[in-house]
Simulated assay, not measured.
Amino acid sequence: MHLNTTLSATLLTVTLAAITPAHGAENRISPEIESVTISHQGEPVIIARGHDRDATLPEEFQKTDRGCPPFCVQPMVAVPGVETIGELELLDYLKRIEQGDDSILVVDSRTPDWVLRGTIPGSVNIPWNTISRDSAGTFETPAEADTFRHVLADEFAAEPLAGGGWDFGEARTLVLFCNGIWCPQSTANIKNLVGIGYPLHKLKWYRGGVQDWVSVGLTTITP
């Protein structure tokens, strides 16, 4: 497991054993927050900001023209009633998970190839296409439908009803993100979940995604 502790044209990785992040008041996350320690796949990770004043964005986030569709600028509100959050709110959810609150799940909706380039520590990768249906609300194959049911039951803690449908009374609060404000993947997931009855108050959207996360120098992690 490796960490990206600074922004550069390529993701800088060091081993966990070698992590010695600078803790200085000159580059705090906020006036009240210097760093946040969480667990990622059983390993401790310190989320902090980089201290290289000459750092630049990773190459994959320097591109501005991506073509729309599909990479269209997303609205500020994915679905009315679903809260849009920023970095500090996301950090608060991660801290709550670290403190033992298993009613929350931070979901990286991107495909695995993007996750390999770096993700937000403490998140779980559930690729967007495993919980996205077509415009008719169906899946192309029974296997895709089975995967969707598995994610709802095992990852999101929803309960299948005998007569069909789902009971979301004890389902987790999901905080979903993808690459950034030009990425439609987490937006599509939120719309699909709302379409099957997932409670609006249990869905949160980090609209800025990984691009905003690295833009402010926050730690990312690679599998």
Rank of each mutant, 00 (worst) to 15 (best):
R53T: 14
L174S: 02
A17E: 15
F177N: 01
F177T: 02
Q62N: 06
T37L: 08
R133F: 09
V73C: 01
T130V: 11
V175N: 04
T141Y: 09
G217R: 02
G24L: 11
R172K: 15
N189F: 03
W205N: 06
K95C: 01
D102L: 10
A158Q: 03
M1G: 08
C68T: 10
A22Q: 13
A143D: 14
L193D: 01
E83P: 01
P121N: 04
L174C: 03
D113L: 12
L3C: 06
R149A: 15
D108W: 04
M76C: 07
S8Q: 13
A18P: 00
E98K: 11
A143E: 15
A9T: 12
G122A: 02
F61V: 04
T141L: 05
G67A: 10
L116A: 15
E144W: 05
L94G: 00
V73H: 04
V106P: 00
K63A: 12
C72M: 07
I97Y: 01
P75Q: 10
E159V: 15
V115N: 03
G137N: 06
V115F: 11
V216T: 14
F71P: 00
A25K: 14
T173A: 02
G118H: 05
W114S: 07
F61R: 03
L218V: 05
A188S: 12
D134E: 13
T20L: 05
T64H: 10
H150M: 14
R96H: 06
F71I: 04
C72S: 07
P70E: 01
F71L: 12
V14G: 13
R66V: 09
L218R: 07
S186Q: 08
R172A: 05
L90Q: 02
D101H: 09
P69F: 07
K191N: 07
G86C: 02
L88Q: 12
D65T: 09
L161T: 08
R117Y: 06
D108H: 09
P58L: 04
L94R: 00
F139V: 06
S135A: 14
A158I: 03
E34Y: 14
P112I: 04
M76P: 06
L57G: 01
T20Q: 11
D108I: 10
V107R: 00
P75F: 08
P70Y: 08
A9Q: 12
V115W: 11
G217M: 04
L218C: 02
I120Q: 00
I29Q: 03
V115L: 10
R53S: 15
V124M: 10
D134W: 08
P44Q: 08
H150W: 12
